[in-house]
């Protein structure tokens, strides 16, 4: 086994939270919840309010996953990295930013909004909040399965690059008025992978990887992050 899954966090149209503490959402409109810092961190954070929707979504699911793994509290920075897969990423923010450039002229463009037009920015936010000094990057693949990012994380852990990785998908979906739609499930799902879990009882199961790059969960090949989540669900409690 290369790593154990010790934490799961997600935000979907139906529920949000972590594997060991999540809530069913009452909204039935098929939209993602409007996230506030109190919902995510249990406290007011003005900084969270300034983030774009894509960043809030991803940061919320990362936070829930770290809480689930009991890794949300820290004294010293640790070499844990984050990999997120996304199709549309921050495209809605890109569109909003460039609307401002057109309307006001480039010289009046918003620097704060521009900073959010890089899809890896929220990984930096998570790194600051949780003291994570491992690499953080976005993976974009044609199919929204999320397994490529998982494979890269396991490959790095196999090479002893990082003892802990947070891997997942985050996608607010196709922005309104954008003319190219990809079939996908909107929301965010992150897993905490630990090479040497401090508390084995937190493990949902073990991940491994074949030389051909297939990802195995408890010895069974998985096709997507969503199917991996389904396999972990029996151990999730509400």
């Amino acid at each position: 086994m290369i790593a154990a899954i010790t934490g799961i966090g997600w935000v979907s149209t139906e529920s949000m939270g972590s594997g060991r503490h999540h809530q069913i959402l009452q909204s039935k409109d098929g939209k993602l919840p409007t996230l506030t810092s109190r919902m995510v961190f249990g406290e007011v954070s003005p900084h969270f309010g300034r983030l774009d929707a894509y960043s809030k979504l991803g940061l919320a699911a990362v936070t829930f996953a770290l809480k689930d793994a009991r890794q949300d509290q820290w004294d010293e920075k640790r070499p844990a990295g984050i990999i997120v897969s996304s199709i549309y990423g921050c495209l809605a923010t890109d569109m909003e930013y460039f609307e401002g450039v057109i309307a006001n002229g480039g010289s009046l463009a918003s620097p704060n909004l521009f900073a959010c037009t890089l899809p890896n920015i929220f990984l930096g936010e998570a790194a600051i909040r949780f003291g994570l000094t491992g690499p953080g990057f976005t993976v974009n693949e044609r199919e929204p399965a999320g397994t490529e990012g998982l494979g890269l994380a396991l490959c790095g852990m196999f090479l002893d690059e990082n003892p802990m990785m947070i891997v997942g998908t985050s996608d607010p979906g196709c922005p309104a008025l954008f003319p190219y739609h990809v079939e996908m499930t909107i929301g965010a799902l992150f897993l905490v992978l630990e090479k040497h879990p401090i508390d084995e009882s937190l493990s949902y199961g073990g991940l491994d990887m074949t030389r051909e790059g297939e990802v195995l969960f408890n010895g069974v090949q998985i096709q997507s992050l969503a199917s991996l989540f389904q396999r972990c669900l029996p151990r999730c409690v509400r």
Binding site: N120, F137, V139, E141, C155, G156
Partner: peptide, 17 residues
């Protein structure tokens, strides 16, 4: 294939991966 995006270190990380 896949794409990696990590701001100005994107391709350095792609080579590393």
């Amino acid at each position: 294939g896949i794409n990696i995006s990590a701001s100005c270190a994107s391709s350095t990380i792609a080579i590393a991966r």
